[in-house]
């Protein structure tokens, strides 16, 4: 592998990694307030991508202008997921897996019925070019995705830290009962976190569609990725999530550069498996502390 290939893998991996961090941020937000693992998170991202793609075909405007639209497409589902998750029997972690496994299959079926199984790419000419930095090519699509994702993760982190609603969400995720005793409307904070996470997923889907082919089953690897990042970063640590996302993007890009595109998915699955074995206990303890 030449130095240029290596640099190229590092740079484009790091850029995509920012988008991964954004995807994982929504997953981890839901996990923190509801203790529910949303195995349909990747499907929501893909759904947002399809919505953005359809709107782009229809309107023909710059893809980034369609971000709010893609976010709006998945956002209402947050309310549905919130209600369904609230009805789960304990242990919520396990039952939420079962529920959302079904929901992911439902979404996949719906997307297959709606858009068929063909591969689609939001290949807008507005993002078609790129810049070259000493032999390393940076496509506009990747740059835009990374910048928007960084901005979104930053804004989310800031909101969670400073804003009233953000503090309500953090308090709810730390200790639901105590937050409730302090007069925080925990139901509302949970609902807000779901809606926020789903909106972020939809928006991330649009960005995803500009750099990656969409097909109904594309979401399952995004879910695996989000779980891996949630394990790496712990719950609710945005900066760690960002570093983790970039690291994961780089590992993925290096795998593709060394072994070929086909090994991307098995490498991601292997990473998740290894992370679970190394830190699954930690995740369980985190749950235990919260229950």
């Amino acid at each position: 592998m030449s130095l240029t290939t290596l640099l190229q893998a590092l740079v484009s991996g790091a850029l995509v990694g920012c988008l991964y961090a954004l995807i994982a941020a929504g997953f981890s937000l839901v996990l923190s307030v509801s203790r529910g693992l949303n195995l349909a998170h990747g499907e929501l991202v893909v759904l947002g991508g399809y919505a953005g793609y359809a709107a782009w075909l229809l309107l023909g405007v710059h893809p980034l202008l369609l971000l709010p639209l893609a976010a709006l497409a998945t956002l209402p589902l947050g309310l549905v997921w919130d209600r369904l998750t609230a009805r789960l029997a304990p242990p919520v972690e396990l039952w939420s897996c079962v529920l959302t496994f079904g929901l992911s299959l439902l979404l996949q079926s719906a997307m297959t019925g709606f858009w068929s199984g063909e591969y689609r790419l939001l290949a807008s000419p507005a993002l078609g070019h790129g810049v070259a930095l000493g032999g390393v090519a940076l496509s506009h699509a990747r740059l835009a995705a990374a910048l928007v994702a960084l901005a979104a993760v930053g804004a989310l982190a800031l909101g969670l830290r400073r804003a009233r609603w953000g503090r309500a969400i953090r308090a709810t995720s730390l200790d639901r009962d105590a937050a409730s005793l302090l007069g925080i409307d925990v139901e509302r904070a949970t609902r807000l976190a779901f809606v926020l996470a789903f909106g972020l997923a939809g928006g991330a889907g649009l960005l995803f569609a500009t750099i990656h082919y969409l097909y109904p089953a594309a979401g399952s690897e995004l879910t695996l990725l989000a779980i891996t990042l949630a394990i790496w970063a712990g719950i609710g640590r945005m900066r760690a999530l960002l570093f983790g996302g970039v690291a994961l993007g780089v590992v993925e890009a290096l795998t593709v550069a060394v072994a070929g595109t086909g090994w991307r998915e098995p490498a991601l699955a292997l990473l998740l498996l290894a992370s679970l074995l190394a830190r699954g206990g930690a995740l369980a303890r985190e749950f235990g502390r919260r229950s």
Binding site: L37, L39, P91, E93, L94, S96, C97, S220, E221, L224, I227, G262, W263, E265, P266, A267, L268, A269, L270, L272, L273, L276, L277, G280, G281, L283, A284, F287
Partner: peptide, 20 residues
Amino acid sequence: RLNGAALALATLATAELLRG
């Protein structure tokens, strides 16, 4: 080493790994 949800996820990842 794993229980509950973590084990469920590990089995899911195993199937994906073998598929890949």
